[in-house]
Design a protein around this nucleic acid. Sequence first.
DNA 1: CGATCATGTAACATATAAAGTTACATGAAA
DNA 2: TTTCATGTAACTTTATATGTTACATGATCG
Lengths: 152, 152
Amino acid sequence: MKRDSRLSGVLHVLLHMAQQPGPFTSETLARAMATNPVVIRRIMAGLRDLGYVGSEKGHGGGWTLACDLSKVTLRDVYAALGSPSLLAMGNRTEAPGCLVEQAVNAALDQAFGDAQALLLSRFGEVTLAMLGDDLRKRVGSRKLQGMSAHGA
Amino acid sequence: MKRDSRLSGVLHVLLHMAQQPGPFTSETLARAMATNPVVIRRIMAGLRDLGYVGSEKGHGGGWTLACDLSKVTLRDVYAALGSPSLLAMGNRTEAPGCLVEQAVNAALDQAFGDAQALLLSRFGEVTLAMLGDDLRKRVGSRKLQGMSAHGA
DNA sequence: CGATCATGTAACATATAAAGTTACATGAAA
DNA sequence: TTTCATGTAACTTTATATGTTACATGATCG
């Protein structure tokens, strides 16, 4: 399978939105991410359903942030995407009759479970506000070099 | 992307081989795993190159174990497969000019890196011999119920 | 030596899932 | 009522694992 970059993408969108007042059209956000407006709507749908963002149709419509950035973690955003698979590997057969495969599965599941739990835990420790703070630092140090946030 | 089950598959093969003296043809191993002989050869190629198994052509040929099972870990086997991606998720762009994406990548890379490191560490703690021991326990308890290792 | 067996490998086919695209319906504002 | 923007279905493209066919290579058996 292709590598899933939806979390990366939706975080990019949210952080862009946090930099200035909205609303933002899917068209605008898509241009900023070099992708298609429909892709934006797709990855934002879950966040809208959970109330993290709002969307309005028609003139002056678009997407707006609708949550406290210091309260929403990467784990919340991940869940809003539908909690897609975290690991690229898995067992050949989930409930095998073969004891050999059961032994292999048991060992792998232990390791897989630990890694998934750690990843989710790390996601839970990072809020969108923290990402924003980090971004501000990066902008600050780049300004010292006379470059803009999107500068080459 | 489809879930990668090569590690699961190759461990299954190795553990089957450890249960009785070889050699085993790709044909035989493929039947035990409900797959194709070429798939067996493919996932075993890396292990052969590293000397964990041997292969012989012609009459009486096939695959044989060629390592100390108590010395080879799941991590070694994983490496022999070519160290395929562990995580199903990744960043949209690896080296972005956009500072927003850099901030997102930094946060995600931290979490991804931790999870990968933990997974590799867990793999490194489990030897093939340990899998064999676990299998023997499973066979033992199933025998108490009057069933065979491949029983329904 | 020649037939058979088994691996080695390239080439092609299939399956799955993300990402991108097109088309059109829905609804809000000018 | 025209225009704008989202909502969504359907289709295409791309990437990757898996499965399959075909054939070359080399070893053993007769």
